[in-house]
Nucleic acid binder design. Structure first.
Lengths: 130, 130
DNA sequence: ATACATCCTGTAGTTACTACAGGAGCAAGC
DNA sequence: GCTTGCTCCTGTAGTAACTACAGGATGTAT
């Protein structure tokens, strides 16, 4: 059974414009066309879209997803490469978390310095200081 | 004492191209020019650049920094607005952290499923599943 | 038949920068 | 005085990963 692009979007969770974008960029193969020229998607194509979506949700960059899809088309011995990519991504994610937690703490501190009814905002003063 | 743009960049931690970008976008006021047409920065201008940099590091968007700078030019009663903006930013930062932690856990789990020497990568299989 | 939904292509906008290209001016050493 | 090299100038284009039209064709439901 095949689906039109709107349906594929619903089934994969990837929105229509993004699907066309992925095709333009060669991230997923060009969709087959019906006689009227419209794109059609079979279950395989939808799986691929869902895969891309999941990887994006896990923080993988598009270039890496390209690699993962290529690896998944080959057969064996890919596990090491997949794990490698994933570990690099995990490290990046963890680094981002650390950054954000630092931001979170600093913000929290600044906000508590900032009480209403003052003639000058201590938070702004702090940010301008030194 | 005034400084050339390269010096201002060093003193503020904002890089040269970014300083010019901030000026183009009206985030900081246009720099005064020396007779030879080059930009010059006094301590005040450098403070403003440093302020923008700190705010960016805290996760504030440029539009919000614009507001913060405007508020800092006024005198009183701004504390509430500053705190409001900051709390919204803090909420966004916290939400991002939650997202990333979820990603981190999912990645960790996928990676542990993925041991080398297998004929098929379980991680890829998982990402394609259902 | 008519209205509305869905699809098409192609282009431009988003965020916050960064990276040139191509040229001018300035400071230091010979 | 001249060359070398650094810093500066403007203006434009590129980055990541989409998103949002415009303008038009086709499909579906009443």
């Amino acid at each position: 059974m095949t689906h039109a692009i709107g349906n594929a979007a619903k089934l994969s969770g990837v929105n229509i414009e993004t699907i066309r974008y992925y095709e333009r960029e060669g991230i997923v193969p060009k969709a087959k066309r019906a006689e009227n020229g419209r794109r059609t998607y079979d279950e395989d194509a939808i799986s691929r879209l869902r895969f891309v979506k999941r990887c994006r949700e896990l923080g993988f960059a598009i270039v890496d997803i390209r690699t993962l899809l290529r690896l998944s088309d080959q057969d064996a011995g890919t596990c090491d490469e997949v794990r490698n990519l994933s570990e690099m991504n995990l490290a990046a994610v963890s680094a981002k978390i650390e950054d954000l937690v630092r931001m979170q703490n600093a913000l929290q501190e600044l906000i508590t310095s900032c009480r209403s009814g003052q003639t000058e905002c201590p938070m702004l003063r702090n940010l301008f200081a030194e």
